[in-house]
């Protein structure tokens, strides 16, 4: 965090590998607290939030060094306060982002400058409080929010909130995955496998406490290592994950981010405490044929 940069590594990199390129420097405009970024293969663009600059950057896909952004969304009309994470709906050409002010804001993908969002999702009915992950299932017209409710301990109200893609204003989620059987404590980045209607979520499963007036618990407790959990987009309530990557063999301590590569049957996890990128070959996660009819656990 204290060394803001975006590093790229060859997919087959292993061990102490040198990045193929590093995006960094004043002109690149990136800052700390990038809790999400999106690579848009269709348009060959990297889209990333700038929490400390209240902005969304669109960088060239092959950006390197201090390459300046192609477009910047920033200003008082945008509603962007301190955006931590985002996603790109490539099918509908939209950027869906955390505003940093307890709401989801949606912009046209090509938006630039100080413009108003085309949709804003927030308010008490939405239950959106502290967004750490956003994903869009454009095929099934859904927005998935990794929502965190800091309770300062091992109890958790963190949730995966599922909305209709075009929801706007203060509307209730159509699905909420939360509760002790989910294992969700301190949710982070989420992604969606649209072809198989799956949500991959990063669960840190350890409590960090940034409450201003409270003591900090030790973050070094490896009793509570995190995991990657997989749910169906039709799941709802206090339901266990359909799949996990979890345990001492995984090496995961505090996984903070997840990405998927269905073509190669791989899941990538970034771990904040161990400063490591883990690559798992799990083709079984991607074998299920595209379908919404999965037994209906809602």
């Amino acid at each position: 965090m204290s060394e803001p940069r975006i590093s790229a590594f060859a997919r087959l990199a292993n061990g102490n590998a040198k990045p193929t390129r590093v995006i960094a420097g004043q002109t690149a405009r990136v800052s700390r607290t990038m809790h999400g970024l999106f690579y848009n293969a269709k348009n060959d663009e990297i889209v990333v939030p700038v929490a400390l600059g209240g902005a969304i950057l669109t960088l060239p896909g092959g950006a390197n060094g201090g390459a300046p952004p192609l477009r910047i969304i920033q200003g008082p009309k945008t509603g962007l306060v301190q955006p931590d994470t985002l996603y790109v709906d490539v099918l509908h050409d939209e950027i869906v982002a955390d505003s940093g002010n307890d709401s989801v804001v949606v912009f046209p993908r090509t938006a630039s400058g100080d413009i108003e969002p085309i949709r804003t999702l927030g308010g008490p009915k939405t239950q959106i409080s502290n967004i750490y992950g956003i994903a869009v299932d454009a095929v099934h017209n859904l927005i998935v929010v990794g929502n965190r409710v800091d309770t300062g301990g091992r109890t958790s109200q963190d949730a995966i909130l599922i909305f209709n893609r075009t929801d706007t204003g203060d509307v209730a989620p159509r699905g909420i995955i939360t509760g002790p059987r989910t294992g969700i404590i301190k949710i982070r980045q989420v992604v969606v496998d649209e072809d198989r209607a799956q949500i991959f979520a990063t669960i840190k499963n350890n409590f960090e406490n940034y409450e201003f007036e409270q003591e900090r618990p030790s973050p070094w407790n490896p009793d509570r290592t995190g995991f990657i959990g997989v749910w169906s987009i039709t799941d709802n309530g206090d339901v266990p994950p359909r799949g996990v990557i979890k345990g001492p063999a995984t090496g995961l301590v505090w996984p903070a981010g997840v990405a998927i590569n269905p073509v190669n049957g791989e899941v990538y996890a970034i771990d904040s405490v161990s400063n490591a990128l883990f690559m798992f070959r799990v083709p079984e996660f991607f074998k299920r044929p595209p379908s919404m009819s999965d037994g209906g656990r809602r």
């Binding site: 060394e3 590594f9 040198k18 690579y39 990297i46 982070r188 980045q189 990405a259 998927i260 490591a276």
Partner: peptide, 26 residues
């Protein structure tokens, strides 16, 4: 000559399918 990975509390990850690369922000 030992490479420097450069991770410092990385917070997200993405896959660049065009370049077969994995993107990691600190």
């Amino acid at each position: 000559g030992a490479p420097t990975v450069g991770f410092g509390n990385p917070g997200a990850v993405a896959y660049d399918s065009k370049r077969d690369e994995i993107l990691v922000p600190n």
